[in-house]
Deep mutational scan, measured.
Amino acid sequence: RTAFSSEQLARLKREFNENRYLTERRRQQLSSELGLNEAQIKIWFQNKRA
């Protein structure tokens, strides 16, 4: 289980509010910017949509 920092969570929530689905390219960008792997971001979005 991933423990996200408050900064990472704030960024993910802001991104989710703008778009509930990420393109592969956007997921790669977020992964690089947040220091998370793409799978972690993908799962976070899946869980948030559920």
Results as ranks from 00 to 15, higher is better:
residue 21 Y to A: 05
residue 37 N to F: 07
residue 49 R to W: 12
residue 20 R to N: 09
residue 42 K to V: 15
residue 47 N to G: 07
residue 37 N to D: 15
residue 43 I to D: 13
residue 12 L to Y: 01
residue 1 R to Y: 12
residue 50 A to K: 14
residue 45 F to M: 02
residue 41 I to P: 00
residue 31 S to K: 04
residue 18 E to A: 09
residue 16 F to A: 02
residue 23 T to W: 04
residue 9 L to V: 08
residue 47 N to E: 13
residue 44 W to L: 03
residue 47 N to S: 10
residue 24 E to R: 15
residue 3 A to K: 13
residue 25 R to C: 08
residue 15 E to S: 04
residue 39 A to L: 14
residue 5 S to W: 03
residue 35 G to T: 03
residue 15 E to Y: 05
residue 12 L to F: 01
residue 50 A to H: 10
residue 35 G to Q: 07
residue 7 E to F: 08
residue 31 S to W: 03
residue 3 A to V: 12
residue 27 R to N: 08
residue 48 K to H: 11
residue 28 Q to F: 07
residue 3 A to P: 13
residue 14 R to E: 13
residue 14 R to I: 09
residue 19 N to H: 09
residue 41 I to E: 01
residue 28 Q to N: 07
residue 42 K to D: 15
residue 38 E to N: 04
residue 43 I to R: 13
residue 19 N to G: 05
residue 37 N to G: 11
residue 12 L to C: 03
residue 24 E to W: 07
residue 40 Q to A: 14
residue 7 E to D: 09
residue 14 R to M: 12
residue 23 T to G: 07
residue 12 L to Q: 00
residue 48 K to Y: 14
residue 12 L to A: 00
residue 23 T to S: 13
residue 9 L to Q: 06
residue 4 F to D: 02
residue 21 Y to R: 06
residue 6 S to P: 14
residue 32 S to K: 15
residue 32 S to H: 12
residue 47 N to H: 11
residue 43 I to T: 11
residue 29 Q to K: 08
residue 33 E to H: 03
residue 36 L to E: 01
residue 18 E to M: 10
residue 50 A to F: 09
residue 26 R to N: 04
residue 23 T to E: 04
residue 24 E to Q: 13
residue 14 R to W: 09
residue 43 I to H: 11
residue 46 Q to R: 12
residue 31 S to Q: 05
residue 27 R to W: 09
residue 13 K to L: 15
residue 22 L to P: 14
residue 2 T to M: 11
residue 38 E to Y: 04
residue 22 L to N: 02
residue 41 I to L: 07
residue 10 A to F: 05
residue 18 E to Y: 07
residue 45 F to P: 00
residue 32 S to Q: 14
residue 17 N to L: 09
residue 14 R to F: 09
residue 21 Y to E: 07
residue 43 I to C: 12
residue 41 I to D: 01
residue 30 L to M: 04
residue 1 R to W: 10
residue 3 A to F: 13
residue 48 K to V: 07
residue 5 S to M: 03
residue 29 Q to C: 07
residue 31 S to P: 01
residue 34 L to S: 02
residue 10 A to L: 10
residue 15 E to Q: 03
residue 28 Q to P: 01
residue 30 L to Q: 01
residue 28 Q to M: 10
residue 5 S to T: 14
residue 50 A to N: 11
residue 34 L to Q: 01
residue 26 R to M: 08
residue 13 K to P: 00
residue 26 R to Q: 10
residue 3 A to R: 13
residue 9 L to H: 05
residue 33 E to V: 05
residue 45 F to Q: 01
residue 29 Q to R: 09
residue 19 N to E: 04
residue 6 S to F: 10
residue 36 L to Q: 01
residue 40 Q to N: 05
residue 50 A to E: 10
residue 46 Q to L: 09
residue 40 Q to C: 13
residue 34 L to R: 00
residue 22 L to K: 01
residue 11 R to G: 06
residue 25 R to P: 07
residue 28 Q to G: 06
residue 44 W to T: 00
residue 47 N to D: 09
residue 7 E to N: 06
residue 1 R to A: 14
residue 7 E to S: 08
residue 22 L to C: 05
residue 20 R to T: 06
residue 7 E to Q: 08
residue 11 R to F: 05
residue 19 N to C: 13
residue 29 Q to F: 07
residue 40 Q to M: 12
residue 49 R to G: 06
residue 45 F to W: 15
residue 3 A to M: 11
residue 31 S to C: 09
residue 29 Q to I: 11
residue 6 S to T: 11
residue 49 R to H: 07
residue 18 E to D: 08
residue 25 R to I: 11
residue 40 Q to T: 13
residue 25 R to K: 13
residue 44 W to E: 00
residue 29 Q to A: 11
residue 46 Q to D: 14
residue 41 I to G: 00
residue 39 A to P: 04
residue 36 L to F: 02
residue 14 R to S: 10
residue 43 I to P: 00
residue 24 E to Y: 08
residue 24 E to P: 15
residue 8 Q to H: 05
residue 8 Q to D: 05
residue 17 N to V: 08
residue 19 N to Q: 05
residue 23 T to D: 11
residue 46 Q to F: 10
residue 10 A to S: 08
residue 48 K to W: 09
residue 50 A to D: 09
residue 32 S to I: 14
residue 35 G to V: 03
residue 11 R to A: 12
residue 27 R to F: 11
residue 19 N to R: 07
residue 37 N to I: 05
residue 20 R to S: 12
residue 5 S to E: 03
residue 44 W to D: 01
residue 39 A to Y: 13
residue 26 R to G: 04
residue 37 N to Q: 11
residue 16 F to N: 01
residue 17 N to P: 01
residue 43 I to M: 12
residue 7 E to Y: 09
residue 5 S to P: 02
residue 35 G to H: 07
residue 20 R to E: 09
residue 30 L to N: 00
residue 6 S to I: 09
residue 15 E to C: 04
residue 28 Q to K: 14
residue 48 K to A: 15
residue 11 R to N: 04
residue 25 R to L: 12
residue 20 R to V: 06
residue 49 R to V: 09
residue 22 L to A: 03
residue 37 N to E: 14
residue 10 A to H: 07
residue 12 L to R: 00
residue 8 Q to T: 06
residue 3 A to C: 15
residue 2 T to R: 10
residue 32 S to A: 14
residue 39 A to I: 13
residue 36 L to N: 00
residue 5 S to I: 03
residue 5 S to H: 04
residue 23 T to H: 04
residue 33 E to C: 04
residue 24 E to A: 14
residue 13 K to T: 15
residue 50 A to V: 09
residue 47 N to V: 11
residue 23 T to N: 09
residue 48 K to M: 15
residue 32 S to T: 12
residue 22 L to M: 05
residue 5 S to D: 06
residue 18 E to R: 10
residue 9 L to C: 11
residue 36 L to T: 03
residue 17 N to C: 12
residue 25 R to V: 12
residue 45 F to V: 01
residue 10 A to D: 11
residue 41 I to M: 03
residue 27 R to S: 15
residue 24 E to C: 09
residue 31 S to M: 05
residue 43 I to L: 13
residue 14 R to H: 11
residue 11 R to H: 05
residue 41 I to R: 00
residue 12 L to W: 02
residue 1 R to N: 14
residue 17 N to G: 08
residue 2 T to W: 11
residue 3 A to G: 12
residue 47 N to K: 11
residue 28 Q to T: 07
residue 42 K to R: 12
residue 4 F to R: 02
residue 24 E to L: 10
residue 41 I to V: 08
residue 22 L to D: 09
residue 49 R to T: 08
residue 38 E to H: 05
residue 47 N to F: 12
residue 34 L to D: 00
residue 30 L to A: 00
residue 21 Y to I: 10
residue 13 K to Q: 15
residue 9 L to T: 06
residue 16 F to Q: 02
residue 9 L to R: 06
residue 42 K to S: 14
residue 34 L to I: 08
residue 47 N to L: 13
residue 41 I to Q: 01
residue 35 G to L: 05
residue 1 R to C: 15
residue 22 L to V: 05
residue 4 F to S: 02
residue 21 Y to K: 06
residue 49 R to E: 07
residue 43 I to A: 12
residue 19 N to V: 04
residue 29 Q to Y: 07
residue 33 E to F: 03
residue 49 R to N: 12
residue 19 N to Y: 06
residue 39 A to S: 11
residue 21 Y to M: 07
residue 29 Q to D: 07
residue 17 N to R: 11
residue 26 R to S: 05
residue 47 N to C: 13
residue 36 L to P: 00
residue 50 A to R: 14
residue 15 E to R: 02
residue 27 R to A: 15
residue 49 R to F: 09
residue 22 L to E: 04
residue 48 K to R: 14
residue 50 A to L: 10
residue 23 T to R: 03
residue 43 I to E: 15
residue 17 N to D: 12
residue 12 L to H: 00
residue 11 R to C: 05
residue 36 L to Y: 01
residue 25 R to W: 08
residue 46 Q to P: 03
residue 7 E to K: 07
residue 27 R to G: 10
residue 4 F to N: 02
residue 31 S to H: 02
residue 35 G to A: 06
residue 46 Q to E: 13
residue 13 K to R: 13
residue 30 L to W: 01
residue 14 R to L: 11
residue 37 N to T: 15
residue 48 K to Q: 15
residue 37 N to L: 12
residue 4 F to A: 03
residue 15 E to K: 01
residue 13 K to D: 15
residue 34 L to E: 01
residue 6 S to H: 11
residue 39 A to V: 12
residue 12 L to D: 01
residue 25 R to M: 10
residue 28 Q to Y: 08
residue 40 Q to Y: 09
residue 20 R to W: 08
residue 37 N to P: 15
residue 39 A to Q: 14
residue 16 F to E: 01
residue 4 F to W: 06
residue 50 A to I: 10
residue 31 S to E: 05
residue 35 G to C: 06
residue 41 I to W: 03
residue 42 K to M: 15
residue 35 G to P: 00
residue 10 A to K: 08
residue 5 S to V: 03
residue 34 L to K: 01
residue 8 Q to E: 03
residue 45 F to Y: 04
residue 43 I to S: 10
residue 16 F to I: 03
residue 45 F to K: 00
residue 41 I to Y: 01
residue 2 T to Q: 13
residue 17 N to K: 14
residue 48 K to C: 10
residue 2 T to H: 14
residue 9 L to K: 05
residue 13 K to A: 13
residue 38 E to P: 12
residue 31 S to I: 05
residue 3 A to N: 12
residue 39 A to K: 11
residue 2 T to A: 09
residue 9 L to Y: 05
residue 4 F to Q: 02
residue 21 Y to W: 10
residue 4 F to K: 02
residue 5 S to Q: 04
residue 2 T to V: 12
residue 30 L to H: 00
residue 25 R to T: 13
residue 47 N to W: 15
residue 41 I to S: 00
residue 15 E to P: 00
residue 24 E to S: 14
residue 19 N to F: 05
residue 28 Q to A: 10
residue 36 L to W: 02
residue 50 A to Y: 07
residue 36 L to C: 06
residue 10 A to I: 07
residue 45 F to L: 02
residue 7 E to A: 08
residue 44 W to V: 02
residue 8 Q to R: 02
residue 29 Q to H: 07
residue 22 L to F: 03
residue 10 A to Y: 06
residue 42 K to T: 14
residue 14 R to Q: 14
residue 48 K to E: 15
residue 50 A to G: 07
residue 10 A to T: 07
residue 15 E to F: 04
residue 19 N to I: 03
residue 32 S to D: 11
residue 15 E to G: 02
residue 18 E to T: 08
residue 22 L to I: 08
residue 10 A to M: 08
residue 45 F to D: 01
residue 14 R to D: 09
residue 30 L to K: 00
residue 10 A to Q: 09
residue 14 R to Y: 10
residue 29 Q to T: 08
residue 1 R to S: 13
residue 27 R to M: 15
residue 42 K to F: 12
residue 7 E to M: 07
residue 2 T to E: 13
residue 46 Q to S: 09
residue 3 A to T: 11
residue 40 Q to W: 11
residue 37 N to H: 12
residue 34 L to A: 01
residue 5 S to L: 04
residue 11 R to E: 05
residue 28 Q to V: 09
residue 24 E to G: 09
residue 45 F to H: 01
residue 49 R to D: 06
residue 35 G to F: 04
residue 25 R to Q: 14
residue 12 L to G: 00
residue 42 K to E: 15
residue 9 L to S: 04
residue 32 S to N: 08
residue 32 S to F: 13
residue 2 T to K: 10
residue 17 N to T: 09
residue 3 A to Y: 14
residue 13 K to I: 15
residue 29 Q to S: 07
residue 34 L to M: 06
residue 44 W to A: 02
residue 1 R to Q: 14
residue 28 Q to E: 08
residue 3 A to I: 12
residue 9 L to F: 04
residue 27 R to K: 10
residue 4 F to G: 01
residue 16 F to L: 03
residue 35 G to I: 03
residue 8 Q to P: 01
residue 46 Q to Y: 11
residue 30 L to V: 02
residue 8 Q to S: 03
residue 7 E to W: 11
residue 36 L to H: 01
residue 11 R to Y: 06
residue 43 I to N: 11
residue 17 N to S: 11
residue 32 S to V: 15
residue 6 S to W: 09
residue 21 Y to P: 04
residue 20 R to K: 10
residue 16 F to W: 10
residue 26 R to T: 06
residue 50 A to S: 09
residue 1 R to E: 15
residue 14 R to P: 00
residue 20 R to L: 03
residue 23 T to V: 03
residue 43 I to Q: 13
residue 32 S to G: 07
residue 25 R to S: 13
residue 47 N to M: 14
residue 23 T to Y: 03
residue 39 A to E: 15
residue 28 Q to C: 08
residue 18 E to S: 07
residue 29 Q to P: 01
residue 3 A to E: 14
residue 11 R to Q: 06
residue 5 S to K: 04
residue 10 A to N: 08
residue 50 A to W: 09
residue 1 R to I: 13
residue 29 Q to N: 07
residue 49 R to Q: 09
residue 11 R to S: 06
residue 23 T to I: 02
residue 31 S to V: 07
